[in-house]
Design a binder for these strands. Structure first.
Lengths: 130, 130
DNA sequence: GCATTTGTACATTGTATATGTACAAACAAC
DNA sequence: GTTGTTTGTACATATACAATGTACAAATGC
């Protein structure tokens, strides 16, 4: 991953930077853009790239390692690992439903048209393949 | 709104309580469950109901008032107002797309099956009417 | 060995969150 | 019209969280 424009940080956002990094990287991991064996940038490289302190990136890497995505070793950096999908939690579907409803409500409140929302929902649904 | 089970607070969540309240209420407002003219519970009632301090609820009400949803007056409480949908921001669609991708990635990582995710996407898409 | 490159540990600082307490406005009762 | 009560508001405080600064420890190459 070299200078990937996929990750962008909004320092104004109310969601903390290290979680923005986690969320952005998790997308790439889940979607397979980052594959097992791939090397992520070093915490210092990515920190420089994103304009944040390397410890902030390190914190994000630690969370992803705790989720089972990364293997962290000194001098070698962060490597994407094989990861088994965990068993589904009981309330997972309901949580997702609520989060999705709230996300849609938020963007509707911000003026995004229902037409465009539906378009995005359909597009993302398309992209999901079993 | 009397003792509505629609709002549930997770004190363990990393998203702060006042924002959970804002997000939950905004859903009800956008979806029309709460209509202009409706009275919300007082900050003390809702605080008691949710098990949080009334100032935490007050903070949530203030945010919603700042978004144009509520009219707050002493002694009368919080009343839902008419609210014009604001003009769409330029990056709104892209922001939504990214948030949605990240939400899906997160629940996939948590083990929610693609089948159930697609089902929810379709269900919410259905419910959206222009 | 020694230097360099990595992640790690931890102290420090600033900011955000939640609460406690006192207050001010509005309205009702009398 | 005074008094009491019910509302939201203001602000001080305590705590937790986020981001950074700095020093360190492990691993590798030479």
């Amino acid at each position: 991953m070299t200078r990937d424009a996929t990750l962008r940080i909004d320092p104004e956002s109310s969601t903390p930077v290290y979680r923005q990094v986690v969320d952005g990287l998790r997308s790439l991991l889940v979607e397979g853009t980052l594959q097992p064996g791939d090397a992520l940038p070093t915490v210092r490289e990515l920190g420089l790239d994103l304009g944040v302190h390397f410890n902030t990136v390190a914190e994000a890497y630690r969370l992803l390692a705790a989720e089972g995505w990364l293997d962290l070793r000194r001098r070698r950096g962060a490597i994407v690992t094989e990861r088994a999908v965990p068993r589904q939690q009981p309330q997972a579907q309901e949580d997702f439903s609520r989060s999705l409803r709230q996300l849609i409500a938020q963007v509707r409140a911000d003026g995004l048209s229902i037409r465009l929302i539906k378009k995005e929902l359909e597009r993302l649904n398309q992209e999901l393949t079993v």
